[in-house]
Amino acid sequence: MENKKAKNAFENLLARQDYLVTQANELAKAFGNLKATEHKILDYCFSYIKKEDTADTVYHLTLQEILKHLGLNASGENYTRVAGALNRLHEKTALYLQLYKDDGTPFIRMTSLFQHIDIDRNGDVEIKYNADIAPYIFQLKQQYYSFNLIELSRVRSKYTLIMLKLWNATVMEKWSNFNDPHRKLPDLYLNASLEKWESWFLGYTVDEKGNKTPIRWSAGRFKKEALGVALNELAELYPKSTITLTPDKRGRRVVGYTLEIRQINTTLDTNTVVIDGKPQPPRVKGKQGVRKEEKSIPTNISEKVAEYNAEEQTELSEVEKLKQKIAELEAKVNSKPKEVKGLFDDADLKKSEKKITDNLDKMTGKSPQDLEQTELF
């Protein structure tokens, strides 16, 4: 029975890969605080929505389907991981909606994306979206963006997912189907302040009282770890695109970014990403398909080698000098006679002996020879 369920879940997953994930444009900018896994689970949940659905529609899926979508095996650890991701997804999808009263007075409604997410012991999941956000996800007629689920599932970084959604939500032209062999992506021109870019990609934190605090990074870190990661992966996924990111500056301070993505018709291998006027090195595949940045050799490597050799030569010359000094000392020592003569030569010793003998004669009236023959008792 379990094998049959797994087979049905897998076939159901394959059938869903061409379903469109459809959301309002505002939602494309609302979930920067989600992680990549949470983004992919959210997109999978959105893929169940049909144009004819209403706010009362309830959706049913399984943890096993989500595992297959994420490419994970059905282990107990992964079931727990996905269940935890659904829990965080419910907690981290709070929304602020700007609405208007009947007299035109604007107001802010604080709500959330899901009304509830139920998970039972068999792994069945029930989802119901909040009625407050129904205009953003149901019966969309104008401002929406859409992707094939398979197109989103091949993305690795959460920043790339967000950039892809921003690209789709910003342009007026709608994206053609992923399976279309002649598809041509629309060009993009997107300009925004640094604060807006960070709100789209980083989101916010929530304290114990429920207050939201926007996450802020330095401009350099944000460019490298968020925008750079997203644009380099986009260049891999869409190699016929030229991507240019230009910082907007006030003096030396970065206050925003302008992103331009244009389609090209070429078969040449070239750097397609230009950030701050500098072409980015292409990323290459490592072992087992894991992509990593190609390590480049520093341009001043010859200078470093020359400096190292000069230091080596200096150290060796100092050693040679020390060896020469030791050799000179050894030569001086070896030049001295091996037999030590003592403090006095023979003439001096005889004079001293005679003087001592004369003094003894005066004191005792006897010679030293007589003293040696005298008995003590």
Score class of each variant (00 low, 15 high):
residue 279 P to F: 03
residue 266 T to F: 08
residue 238 Y to Q: 06
residue 256 G to D: 03
residue 223 K to Y: 01
residue 268 L to R: 15
residue 261 I to Y: 12
residue 275 I to A: 09
residue 238 Y to F: 13
residue 250 R to W: 02
residue 277 G to T: 04
residue 236 E to F: 03
residue 240 K to S: 10
residue 274 V to P: 00
residue 283 R to P: 00
residue 266 T to Y: 04
residue 225 E to Y: 03
residue 223 K to V: 06
residue 227 L to C: 15
residue 258 T to V: 07
residue 221 R to H: 14
residue 239 P to G: 05
residue 283 R to M: 12
residue 277 G to S: 06
residue 275 I to Y: 00
residue 278 K to T: 09
residue 278 K to V: 11
residue 259 L to C: 11
residue 230 A to R: 05
residue 252 R to A: 06
residue 240 K to T: 10
residue 248 D to L: 11
residue 223 K to A: 14
residue 250 R to A: 14
residue 227 L to S: 13
residue 237 L to K: 14
residue 226 A to I: 12
residue 223 K to E: 10
residue 249 K to N: 01
residue 232 N to R: 13
residue 270 T to S: 07
residue 227 L to Y: 04
residue 265 N to A: 10
residue 271 N to L: 01
residue 240 K to Q: 12
residue 246 T to M: 06
residue 225 E to M: 13
residue 252 R to T: 15
residue 227 L to N: 07
residue 274 V to K: 07
residue 250 R to C: 03
residue 243 I to D: 13
residue 267 T to R: 08
residue 258 T to S: 14
residue 238 Y to L: 01
residue 229 V to L: 04
residue 234 L to N: 03
residue 243 I to R: 02
residue 254 V to L: 08
residue 234 L to E: 01
residue 226 A to H: 14
residue 251 G to R: 05
residue 256 G to L: 06
residue 265 N to Y: 11
residue 270 T to P: 00
residue 286 G to D: 07
residue 222 F to D: 01
residue 285 K to L: 06
residue 252 R to D: 11
residue 251 G to I: 00
residue 276 D to E: 15
residue 255 V to W: 04
residue 270 T to V: 13
residue 238 Y to P: 00
residue 241 S to C: 08
residue 283 R to K: 08
residue 250 R to G: 03
residue 280 Q to V: 14
residue 254 V to I: 14
residue 281 P to E: 00
residue 260 E to F: 04
residue 255 V to D: 07
residue 267 T to L: 12
residue 252 R to N: 15
residue 270 T to Y: 05
residue 257 Y to F: 11
residue 267 T to A: 12
residue 231 L to G: 01
residue 277 G to V: 11
residue 249 K to R: 12
residue 286 G to R: 05
residue 261 I to F: 11
residue 230 A to L: 04
residue 239 P to Y: 01
residue 234 L to C: 08
residue 259 L to Y: 00
residue 234 L to R: 12
residue 281 P to Q: 10
residue 225 E to A: 06
residue 276 D to M: 14
residue 260 E to G: 00
residue 264 I to D: 09
residue 222 F to V: 10
residue 269 D to Q: 09
residue 259 L to R: 06
residue 249 K to T: 11
residue 236 E to H: 10
residue 242 T to K: 06
residue 245 L to A: 07
residue 237 L to M: 09
residue 229 V to S: 05
residue 224 K to D: 10
residue 245 L to E: 15
residue 283 R to G: 00
residue 239 P to C: 08
residue 247 P to F: 11
residue 263 Q to R: 15
residue 271 N to V: 02
residue 240 K to F: 04
residue 224 K to F: 11
residue 230 A to G: 04
residue 247 P to M: 10
residue 243 I to Y: 02
